[in-house]
C-alpha cells in the first residue's frame, strides 16, 4: 500500500478560498458572489483584493444564482459561494432554468456539504446535493478530497466553459495531495494499485479509503483505491479498467446512497460489466447534531465501514 504522508490537516473550504484568491490575481473575468457567508466560505481574501468584482447579495440565494447567470452575459465568470444546502436544494429551479438550461458559465461553489458540518444539524447537512446537481443536463459535479485538490479544482473550473458544481466541506482533513497537482476535470486519480477490490471514494471519504487500504493490506487484502473528484462526467474508463482487474467495488461518499457517486458507478457497471458493489453512504436518512467524527461513525461513514464493505463484496465475487 502506497504511503500518503501529510504534514497538516486543513479544511477544503480554505482550499477554495485560496484558489479563488489566486484566480482574482490571474483572471480579470472572475467575479464572486456570496450570500452572507464570506467567512465560512473563506472568500475574504478575494473580496479584500477585488472589491469591485465581489458581490455581497445578502441572505437571498435565489437572487444570487440569477445575478450570477446575468453576470456571464458580457464575459464574466461568476463563482457563487454559500453552504451546499443553500447552493442546491434551496435554489434548484434557479439553477435549472437560469444556469443549466440557459448554459451559463456559473461556478456554484458549496461548502459545509454533508454530515461533517456537524453541530448545526440536519437542516444544514445536505446529503442530496450531488444527486440534485448531477441530474441536471451538462452540469459538471466536482467533489475534491483535500485542501490542495480543492484549490486546484477551483482554479481549473475557471477555464472550463459551462456550469459547474464544486462541493467541499467544513472540517480539517489530511492535506495529502500534491500542492502542484494539475487538476484534470473528469479524470480519476489512482491512489493505490491493487488486485482484490476497487475502492472508489470522493471528497472526505478519500482519506478514509486510504486508511482502509492500509488496514486491509495488513489483513492481506490488496485494495485498488481511486479518488473520483469529478462525479460528472465520470471517468468510466478508469473505473472499468480497475473493475476488470479486481471484479468487485466499494463506493464511499458523504452523501445519500440514493443519487450519489455509488449510483453513478452502479449505472456504469450494470451497463458494461455487472459487478458486485457495496455502498458506503448514508442510507435514506437525515443527519443530526453532533461532532463530525461522531456523525460519521453513527451514520456508517468510517474507515471500519469501508473495511466491512470490502470484506462483504469480496465474498460476493
Amino acid at each position: 500500500m502506497r504511503k500518503y504522508p501529510y504534514t497538516e490537516k486543513k479544511d477544503t473550504r480554505s482550499g477554495f478560498g485560496a484558489g479563488l484568491q489566486q484566480l482574482g490575481q490571474t483572471n480579470p473575468n472572475v467575479v464572486a458572489l456570496c450570500a452572507d457567508l464570506i467567512g465560512s466560505l473563506k472568500m475574504d481574501a478575494f473580496k479584500a483584493e477585488n472589491p469591485d468584482r465581489f458581490f455581497q447579495v445578502g441572505i437571498a440565494e435565489a437572487n444570487m444564482i440569477g445575478i450570477a447567470a446575468g453576470l456571464t452575459i458580457g464575459g464574466k465568470i461568476p463563482f457563487t459561494g454559500t453552504f451546499a444546502n443553500f447552493s442546491t436544494g434551496r435554489v434548484y429551479d434557479q439553477i435549472r432554468q437560469s444556469v443549466a438550461y440557459s448554459g451559463k458559465n456559473v461556478k456554484i461553489c458549496a461548502s459545509h456539504a454533508g454530515l461533517t458540518l456537524g453541530e448545526d444539524g440536519a437542516t444544514h447537512q445536505i446529503l442530496e446535493d450531488i444527486g440534485l446537481m448531477k441530474m441536471l443536463p451538462h452540469m459538471c459535479v466536482i467533489n475534491p478530497c483535500d485542501y490542495n485538490q480543492t484549490k486546484a479544482a477551483t482554479i481549473a473550473i475557471a477555464d472550463y466553459e459551462g456550469p459547474v458544481y464544486l462541493r467541499f466541506g467544513r472540517p480539517v482533513v489530511p492535506n495529502f495531495t500534491p500542492a502542484d497537482q494539475k487538476f484534470e476535470i473528469g479524470k480519476a486519480v489512482m491512489l493505490n494499485e491493487g488486485t482484490d477490490v476497487t475502492i472508489i471514494a470522493t471528497g472526505h471519504m478519500v482519506w478514509k479509503a486510504i486508511e482502509a487500504g492500509e488496514k486491509l493490506a495488513e489483513l492481506g487484502i490488496s485494495a485498488e483505491i481511486i479518488n473520483i473528484h469529478t462525479i460528472k462526467p465520470l471517468d468510466n474508463e478508469a473505473i472499468l479498467k480497475s473493475i476488470a482487474k479486481t471484479k468487485c467495488v466499494v463506493t464511499a461518499e458523504e452523501h445519500q446512497m440514493n443519487g450519489g457517486l455509488g449510483d453513478s458507478v452502479a449505472q456504469l457497471l450494470s451497463r458494461h460489466t455487472p459487478t458486485p458493489q457495496e455502498f458506503v453512504a448514508v442510507n435514506d436518512s437525515f443527519g443530526e447534531s453532533g461532532t463530525p467524527d461522531q456523525l460519521m461513525t453513527k451514520y456508517g461513514l468510517d474507515t471500519v465501514n469501508i473495511i466491512e464493505a470490502v470484506n462483504k463484496v469480496i465474498k460476493r465475487k
Partner: peptide, 23 residues
C-alpha cells in the same frame, strides 16, 4: 436567458447590468 419559471428575470437583468458596469 431561458424564462418561463417566473420571478427569475430581474436577478438575471441585474447581473447583466453589473457586468455592463464592470465593462
Amino acid at each position: 436567458i431561458a424564462s418561463g419559471s417566473l420571478g427569475q428575470g430581474m436577478s438575471v437583468a441585474i447581473g447583466a447590468a453589473l457586468t455592463k458596469k464592470l465593462n
